[in-house]
Design a protein around this nucleic acid. Structure first.
Lengths: 129, 129
DNA sequence: TCCGATAGTGACAATCATTCTCAATAAGGC
DNA sequence: GCCTTATTGAGAATGATTGTCACTATCGGA
């Protein structure tokens, strides 16, 4: 019943934390395979789903249709992400939180939640262009 | 080279416009099949991708991993959507547009774009609960 | 420290939305 | 009406993700 801790989960957690941007499960599996960690693909998926469920990772679906993850704080926040390299900055947005709640209420909607993400080209990628 | 107009594309366009919320390609295909329109699944996908490309439809990925579409105006806008039934309201958000641009610039990011969506439970679904 | 119940793992099969293939069809200019 | 070629459709192919199930390893208790 209790959750057990294994080196596999720890490996996924730290490999994820070592990256600045979003990574797919497949990517992480490949990365871990390279670094002599023999770990099953299914296990990587399970570990990531677990982290996301516990608020330790953010998940988003890329344009290519794959889900990508990123280590994050468990507080509510949003992202400013580079379209080119995937580098991500966490941003707070109190004003937007209030705005979203207001809009929802104005239309009679209950239990509002929201997604707010900003995309752009980061300073490094601008130089390379 | 020129784009030809076929009844299939028109059927997809109007079937999409007839719905208030987001629909998946599979759903639309099923709907069209019911209404005596014999149309290929691949064609539905192609027509939807086409509409989305021309700004006549919005696309978003559901939690289940399927892409869903909705007819929309080609102006920039955001969505307030019911988590339960999928009913959607288009909303403008000038204040947020400015905010997003400001945040991006503050971090040295270029060419900012953004996604802003609000989810909740619409009045009708609240009654049924 | 040893043990047993059982959560966790991994290899591979299964699923499912979406895309590709390619021969057959039909739109539109002439 | 004719010809070129964009478009269609049926089914195969793809590819990410999830399910299956026998095997393994964690951890609380003896």
């Amino acid at each position: 019943m209790t959750k057990r801790s294994t080196w596999q989960r720890e490996a996924v957690r730290s490999a994820l934390a070592a990256r600045a941007g979003f990574v797919s499960a497949q990517d992480l599996h490949a990365i871990l395979a390279t670094s002599e960690q023999r770990i099953g693909l299914a296990t990587v998926y399970r570990a990531l789903a677990d982290l996301a469920e516990n608020g330790l990772a953010d998940a988003l679906t890329s344009a290519a249709g794959e889900v990508r993850y990123r280590a994050c704080t468990s507080e509510h926040h949003h992202h400013l992400m580079c379209r080119t390299c995937g580098a991500t900055v966490e941003i707070g947005a109190d004003a937007v939180e209030v705005w979203a709640r207001t809009i929802a209420e104005a239309h009679g909607f209950d239990e509002p939640s929201h997604t707010v993400d900003i995309y752009g080209r980061c300073p490094s990628c601008r130089e390379l262009a």
